[in-house]
Amino acid sequence: MGKITLRNVTKKFGDVAVIPALNLDIENGEFVVFVGPSGCGKSTLLRLIAGLEDTTDGSILIDGADATDTPPAKRGLAMVFQSYALYPHMSVRKNISFPLKMAGVDPAEATRKVDNAAKVLNLTSYLDRKPGQLSGGQRQRVAIGRAIVREPKAFLFDEPLSNLDAALRVNMRLEITELHQTLKTTMIYVTHDQVEAMTMADKIVVLNAGRIEQVGSPLTLYRNPANVFVAGFIGSPKMNLITGPEAEKRGATTIGIRPEHIDLSTTAGEWQGEVGVSEHLGSDTFLHVHVPGMPTLTVRAGGEYGVHHGDRIFLTPQADKMHRFGADGKAM
């Protein structure tokens, strides 16, 4: 079981409230991603759940029991750190079996579990090496292995992929998702990368300045962002956010339209603009179009769309995909 409930959890450093009273329910078996810009408090929140930081106020319940004052070792959670935090003086085998040793698990049983984890994570041939002799991806796997063996109530990941290169990151992303589908254990995952959030999460928690901006499934957040912040943060490339007369015309302070929801034409359309940079990704082309009276708009076109720098082009936003936000930034 791994149901985690936060009730009015508050964290202050001195007089600065990093996290003003926050409520959140994490269901058993869910993959929850905390996402937000750096400094938004997502790591602090994770560390509060882990018990590595004391809460200033409020309570944390794990499976219904109050764990607010329980030391990290007793919470039954496992954590994968950004720096992997492997024990440099221990072999891979000793690293992975360390939590079992701490829990007083019978050595034969521990060996069996470590071998199992190593098999799942493709680490079998590295078990006798020291962490220093492994590549970044392998170290990451060892850190995950160390978390798996103790069969925790929930896994906590603190930006685990940010030290890996791009290709490896995509691989590990898949591996962690697969792992979640196999284990069906609650996972809480912190990242600043919205692509990771979108691809991995059952439920995304968007944080900004310690506050929850929106909670929901990836597609809910994509389709119905609750406010300008979420609209701008979720989706890649970013949603075009337009203020001024164009927005007022539609009775809003800000309107938002995603690059993939703008129709292109060389002959007629609602807005007329001039093509600036075009980014060819093969499958898609992203055009940056300068329209008078608006910020540069990003528009998705087909992979082989043939326009050039300086070409005149017409844009028509799909009306049903348009997002409208009021003066308070909230969706209307």
């Binding site: 018990g51 590595l52 990290p72 070792a73 496992a78 950004q82 720096s83 701490m102 103790r150």
Partner: peptide
Amino acid sequence: EILEAARMDGANLRSEIIYVLTP
């Protein structure tokens, strides 16, 4: 972070000092 990892892995202060910090 390594000391925190040890704490997450269930080590109490004594085991933290013996198995992680001292080596």
